[in-house]
Structure formats: structure tokens, C-alpha cells
């Protein structure tokens, strides 16, 4: 644990693949904003294998913006961006979006993905709605048709990534520690670690949470929100931001509909009141009922068409 700020590696973001290689440990931004201080990094493992240890610690921002604004403050000619107040304090106009940094990184991710013809789906839901089960089944059903990679986001453990890995597909685990969502910076680093092949399909399984992930653009091609019938049909009313952000809503665990009070029509109506153009599919990732509609949605996604037209077919790339 860091003695200066109390942060531990366990509390930072970790990006790892499943041979135990930790690609990166990144301290969170609060830490970066705190006073710069040194972290010792003891490495006691053998370096006889071919991967890179990129322990990048994003702190110690020595931003010395020496703009040299030496305005002689003659009356009536105040710089509109630097208005001196009566007590000698200066008001600096910023008008900057608080998500601007995330949005900039998301735009870079989007360009990076589009340049490689990779379609990326940001899959979001509350914990336990069935995201991983859906992805495992999707990978199996599209085997031999689409090249699929997965980036898993969880606060802790690689349990979900282990399940994806059992399908034989490449997977990178992001552990957010205390974080409740993925952001564009985390995805940027995970993309570097995963290095998806051109023309492939990428699923980003966000941290299970129906609130926070809605606000953070990752640079994905489309957003898929999964809700399960055991959660209740009032989810769109309770979590409007998530349903406003969605391109597709999947109502999962449809095999349990006979046992729970869940009005599919009511749920769809509420979702479309918030987001009139949203696609909605009802399926069971466990039994496979309704999966065809979802697989067709993936195949028909315009980003896949762009990818197919925009990049030369390669082995390991898109196979139709």
C-alpha cells in the first residue's frame, strides 16, 4: 500500500490476460491529482517469457503551463478570460464539459476501432442479468462465422474472463478495483493488450451496474443493455439514463417468464417512451430461445458491413 495516499495496487485498475500477465496497474485519477510521490515497484518474477510489462503510473503531473500572461492591467482592457476581481482574485472562464477528457479518449478509441474495421459492442446490465452467459453462448453459436474477442470489466476477480476463455477466444480482464464503471482510458489500455484482429467483433462486458456506465462513452459501435425478467419490468423507469443510452435492449431469462410477474409489453413500452428508436429483443441465453434475433442483429450491424467492405479479408479476420 502507498504510505502517502493510502492507495494500494488492489484499489487501482488492473488489466490482465489469463496467463497471469498483469499488463498494467494504473492508479486512479484522484491519486494522480494528489501530490507527486514515488512508488517502489519490486518485480520478483522471471523475465524469460515474451510479454511486455508496462507498469505505467500516471501520476506526478508536473504541468507547468508557463503561458506568461503578463497583462499590464490597464483599466477597461481586462482579458475576458482572466477577469480580475476586486479583491485581487482572478476569475478564469473555462466552459469545459466535465466528461471532455473521457469523450476525447472515446473518440480516439472509435477511430482506432473503425480503422481496423472492428465492431465493438458495450454490453451493460445490472449484476447477474446474464451478460457473460449471453456472450459465451453467442461466441459458441457464431464460431467459424465471426472472429470474436472480449474485454471483461469487473471490480474484482477474473471469473468472467475464465468463462470466456473456456470458449477459446481471446479475452482481457479489466479489474476496476473500487471503480463502478469502465471508462474510455481503461478501454484504450485494454485494446492495446487485446490487439483485436482487423475485421473482428469485440464485446466489452461492462461492470454490472445500471447507473454509472451509461455516462461513459467508450468509443463503442453500439450499446447493448441486458435486463432479466427476474429484475422487474419497471427497470426503464427506474434507470432512465441507461435506457436512453441503449441502441438495443435485450430482455434475458425469458424461460423464467412463467414464474415471475414481468410484463414484456409494459417494459418495452417504457423503454420506447424514453428512447423511441431502441431495438428490443426477448431471449433466453440459457435455453437458446430467441438467440437467432440477437445473432442476426450482430450480423446486420452497420459497423460489420463497414468492416467487411473497408478491410481486405484476412485469415483470422472476418469469415462470411
Amino acid at each position: 500500500m502507498c504510505a502517502t495516499c493510502g492507495c494500494g495496487d488492489d484499489a487501482g485498475t488492473r488489466i490482465s490476460d489469463l496467463d497471469g500477465t498483469v499488463h498494467e496497474i494504473v492508479h486512479d485519477t484522484a491519486h494522480a491529482a494528489a501530490a507527486p510521490h514515488e512508488h517502489p515497484h519490486p518485480h520478483d518474477h522471471e523475465h524469460d517469457h515474451g510479454h511486455q510489462h508496462d507498469h505505467e503510473h500516471d501520476h506526478g503531473h508536473a504541468h507547468d503551463h508557463g503561458h506568461g500572461h503578463q497583462h499590464p492591467q490597464s483599466p477597461g482592457t481586462a482579458d475576458p478570460g482572466h477577469s480580475p476581481a476586486a479583491d485581487g482574485r482572478t476569475l478564469i472562464s473555462l466552459e469545459e464539459n466535465l466528461l471532455a477528457k473521457n469523450d476525447l479518449l472515446a473518440s480516439r478509441n472509435r477511430g482506432w476501432l473503425e480503422g481496423r474495421g472492428v465492431q465493438a459492442f458495450n454490453v451493460m446490465s445490472s449484476p447477474g442479468a446474464g451478460k457473460t452467459t449471453l456472450l459465451v453462448r453467442t461466441i459458441r453459436e457464431l464460431a467459424g462465422e465471426l472472429e470474436i474477442g472480449v474485454i471483461e470489466g469487473d471490480q474484482e476477480t477474473s471469473l468472467d474472463a475464465d468463462r470466456i476463455r473456456s470458449t477459446g477466444r481471446p479475452v482481457i480482464q479489466i479489474n476496476t478495483g473500487a471503480g463502478c464503471h469502465l471508462d474510455a482510458g481503461m478501454l484504450q489500455r485494454a485494446l492495446g493488450a487485446l490487439d483485436p484482429v482487423p475485421g473482428s467483433t469485440l464485446f466489452i462486458e461492462n461492470v454490472g451496474n445500471l447507473v454509472c456506465p451509461a455516462l461513459f462513452d467508450l468509443g463503442e459501435s453500439a450499446r447493448v443493455v441486458v435486463i432479466s425478467v427476474t429484475e422487474g419490468d419497471d427497470k426503464p423507469q427506474k434507470y432512465p439514463h441507461m435506457f436512453l443510452a441503449a441502441d438495443l435492449v435485450i430482455i434475458n431469462k425469458a424461460d423464467l417468464l412463467p414464474y415471475v410477474e414481468f410484463d414484456v409489453e409494459r417494459c418495452v413500452r417504457q423503454a420506447r417512451l424514453l428512447n423511441p428508436g431502441v431495438d428490443v429483443l426477448t431471449l433466453s441465453a440459457t435455453t437458446g430461445d430467441g438467440m437467432d434475433g440477437w445473432l442476426e442483429w450482430i450480423r446486420k450491424n452497420p459497423h460489420l458491413a463497414t468492416a467487411a467492405a473497408g478491410s481486405a479479408p484476412r485469415s483470422g479476420g472476418l469469415r462470411v
Binding site: L98, A100, K101
Partner: peptide, 15 residues
């Protein structure tokens, strides 16, 4: 994390 972005954005401009 939004408040962290706020602090960073301000520090970038105020040194």
C-alpha cells in the same frame, strides 16, 4: 470519477 476529471481539468488550466 467525474469530480476527479473536474480537478484535473482545473489543474490543467491553473497550474
Amino acid at each position: 470519477s467525474i469530480t476527479q476529471s473536474l480537478v484535473e481539468a482545473v489543474l490543467d488550466r491553473t497550474g
